[in-house]
């Protein structure tokens, strides 16, 4: 170590010094975590979302029927045997929903991941380099926003073999624009600050400034927007599958389950409401979690002692 005099001896130092009086400064992430765990709605949402996800994965593994089972009678009403009834060809609806939830979440995660990576990199680079690069990236954003996303994805997805993964990739390619805009704005204002100037004066390279100084300061915004992107992606995927241009059998998703059953809405409303409630729960809880994260990351928030 460069400064031996300030490193503590591991055995006696660290543990006792911070607990003795309880005045040790919290690290930033501890503050954030604390603020988040005190956000009641966000915590409840997180629990519901985790239960839903676990339910879909564990439930699918342990439920007595799986999606290949077609032995039920056609459109059986809910019963102890089939809690959510059966589909037209006698599949167990609960098993279908377990699987659809898994696919929907998986697709949404891929989409949000791609949108975040592309959006953050383009936004940070444009905001930091400015000039021609900035103009180029922002015109690119304008270009991507000029036609409804749904139409672009529907056409582009046609070029690839149909599977849930290509739908996710194509959706991701057309979902980064908002993230890029937000991150560009934030980078623009960050790069005016003194610490960036100092880094420049010390001769740091552009990539070092972006990755070491700018991106860590964007963490809050990135986390919040990535979370909200998952919620948006669940809905866009459902919409795309609903008009028949998204996920196709044998893959499935909640949107696809709804389109297969919504004609039964009047006679057998449960076939519609079950996947519908799951979609709404997923996107509602993710939105609340994003809200909680936004509050937790906001340094102006002073409700909780830091």
């Amino acid at each position: 170590m460069a400064n031996p005099q300030i490193t503590e001896t591991p055995a006696a130092g660290a543990a006792s010094s911070s607990y003795e009086f309880g005045t040790g400064a919290r690290k930033q992430w501890q503050t954030i975590l604390r603020r988040f765990t005190r956000h009641r709605l966000a915590m409840v949402s997180l629990i519901v979302l985790v239960l839903l996800t676990l339910g879909a994965v564990v439930g699918a593994a342990f439920w007595k029927y799986d999606v290949t089972y077609t032995g039920g009678s056609s459109f059986a009403p809910p019963s102890a045997e089939h809690p959510l009834g059966t589909s037209q060809i006698g599949k167990d609806m609960l098993a279908l929903i377990f699987q659809g939830t898994q696919y929907s979440l998986l697709i949404a995660l891929v989409v949000a991941f791609m949108a975040t990576i592309i959006g953050v990199v383009l936004g940070a680079v444009a905001g930091f380099l400015r000039g021609a690069v900035d103009t180029f990236v922002m015109r690119l954003v304008d270009l991507f926003l000029i036609v409804p996303q749904l139409a672009l994805v529907a056409i582009a997805a046609r070029a690839f073999p149909s599977s849930w993964f290509t739908v996710a990739i194509v959706l991701g390619l057309f979902s980064w624009m908002q993230v890029a805009r937000i991150n560009r704005g934030q980078t623009l204002s960050l790069s005016e600050r003194e610490f960036i100037e100092a880094a420049k004066a010390l001769g740091a390279s552009n990539s070092r400034i972006i990755f070491k100084h700018i991106l860590p300061n964007l963490t809050g915004i990135i986390t919040v927007n990535a979370t909200l992107a998952v919620a948006t992606a669940v809905l866009s995927e459902a919409a795309l599958s609903f008009i028949g241009l998204g996920v196709k059998p044998p893959d499935t998703s909640l949107g696809l389950i709804i389109i297969e059953n919504y004609s039964q809405f009047q006679d057998r409303p449960w076939l519609f409401y079950a996947p519908f409630v799951v979609i709404v729960l997923i996107s509602l809880t993710i939105n609340f979690i994003g809200d909680g994260l936004r509050d937790a990351f906001d340094p102006r928030q002073t409700k909780v002692r830091a």
């Binding site: 809905l235 459902a238 919409a239 949107g255 809405f265 979609i279 709404v280 996107s283 509602l284 609340f288």
Partner: peptide
Amino acid sequence: FVMFSMPVFCVAIVVKTYGI
């Protein structure tokens, strides 16, 4: 918040059914 989190087609399906 609930409206935000709802797929457009679900609102449409419900509205249509009650319209009928």
